[in-house]
Simulated assay, not measured.
Amino acid sequence: MRTSEFDSSSEEEVEEEQLTPFHISWLPLSIVECSQYLGICALPGCKYKDIRRSLEKDVDELQNQGVQDVFVFCTRGELNKYRVPSLLEVYLQRGFTVHHTPFPDGDVPELEQCCHILKKLQVCLENNRRTVIHRCLSAASALSNNDAKQSHRNPQGAPRRRSNTDREAIQLPP
């Protein structure tokens, strides 16, 4: 009996992993008078349903794009579910600064948790740190799918208005 008859998954995964390049959407923060960009991407190395990503290649791409800080909102259980249980450790080994503030997929962080995230994010941006955030699958994949259709600088149908609370929400200096 040949081993390959029972162990074709790794070979198939390698092929599938190479199909889609890792994409980071760089969003300008000029609406809050910040010259920095914030990256949003899918979960590196994710393997779920028809998604097969290579953790090594995805993390390489983050490094190639100069990412220094990564905000991860996935719970440990979600990292296990999406088959990247060692993601946080891989980030640390590769020299990223990891900001892990987990809350369940589909939920929003509590107000105190949200303020904590925004303060950390503000410090990163003020220090000109190239920063990426990612959740599990939903928001990042929806955003990436829209990249080919429209620019994030001025999406169709989204009026650009600035209220006095924009600056206060993120507390950026003038």
Results as ranks from 00 to 15, higher is better:
Pro44Trp: 02
Arg153Leu: 15
Ile31Pro: 06
Gln171Tyr: 10
Leu87His: 01
Tyr48Ile: 06
Glu112Gln: 08
Val67Trp: 03
Pro85Arg: 05
Phe96Ile: 02
Cys136Trp: 02
Leu111Gln: 14
Leu29Trp: 01
Ser30Met: 13
Pro155Ser: 04
Glu61Tyr: 09
Pro155Met: 04
Arg94Thr: 00
Leu143Ala: 09
Phe103Ile: 08
Arg53Glu: 04
Arg135His: 10
Leu121Lys: 01
Val132Ser: 05
Arg83Trp: 03
Arg52Asp: 08
Ala158His: 14
Gln18Asn: 14
Ile31Met: 11
Leu29Ile: 06
Arg94Val: 01
Glu12Ile: 15
Arg162Pro: 03
Tyr82Leu: 08
Leu27Phe: 07
Ala140Pro: 00
Thr97His: 10
Glu12Val: 11
Glu12Arg: 13
Ala42Cys: 09
Leu29Ala: 01
Arg53Ile: 00
Arg160Cys: 14
Gln122Asp: 05
Lys47Ser: 06
Leu137Thr: 12
Val72Tyr: 00
Gly106Leu: 00
Lys57Pro: 05
Ser9Gly: 13
Ser10Gln: 15
Gln65Val: 02
Leu62Tyr: 00
Val32Leu: 07
Tyr82Asp: 02
Asp50Gln: 13
Val67His: 03
Pro21Met: 05
Pro109Gly: 01
Pro155Lys: 06
Val32Tyr: 05
Glu13Met: 09
Glu13Arg: 13
Phe103Ala: 03
Ala139Trp: 13
Lys119Cys: 09
Ile133Ser: 11
Leu88Ser: 05
Cys136Val: 09
Val14Ile: 10
Arg76Pro: 06
Asp147Met: 13
Arg53Thr: 01
Ser144Arg: 12
Glu5Asp: 11
Gly106Ile: 02
Thr3His: 09
Asn80Lys: 15
His116Thr: 14
Cys136Pro: 01
Glu33Gln: 11
Pro85Ile: 00
Cys41Pro: 01
Glu89Gly: 07
Arg94Glu: 05
Tyr37Asp: 08
Gln93Ala: 13
Gln63Thr: 11
Gln122Val: 07
Glu12Thr: 10
Thr97Leu: 06
Ala140Leu: 02
Ser35Asp: 12
Glu89Trp: 08
Ser35Gln: 13
Arg130Trp: 03
Leu43Ser: 03
Ala142Leu: 14
Asp107Ile: 08
Arg160Met: 12
Arg153Cys: 15
Thr165Cys: 15
Gln150Tyr: 08
Thr97Met: 07
Pro21Ile: 03
Gly157Cys: 06
Cys74Glu: 01
Leu125Trp: 04
Glu78Met: 06
Gly95Lys: 05
Arg135Pro: 10
Gly45Thr: 05
Gln63Trp: 08
Pro102Arg: 03
Val123Ile: 12
Tyr37Ser: 08
Leu125Met: 07
Pro104Lys: 04
Thr20Met: 12
His134Met: 04
Arg135Asp: 15
Pro159Tyr: 07
Asn80Phe: 12
Asn80Ile: 15
Asn146Gln: 15
Ser141Asn: 11
Asn80Arg: 11
Asp58Pro: 01
Pro21Arg: 06
Ile133Glu: 09
Gly157Tyr: 04
Phe22Lys: 02
Ala158Ile: 14
Thr75Ala: 04
Ile170Met: 14
Ile24Glu: 00
Ser8Tyr: 11
Trp26Arg: 07
Ser25Pro: 06
Pro28Tyr: 04
Arg161Ser: 11
Lys119Glu: 15
Asn80Val: 13
Gly66Val: 01
Gln122Glu: 06
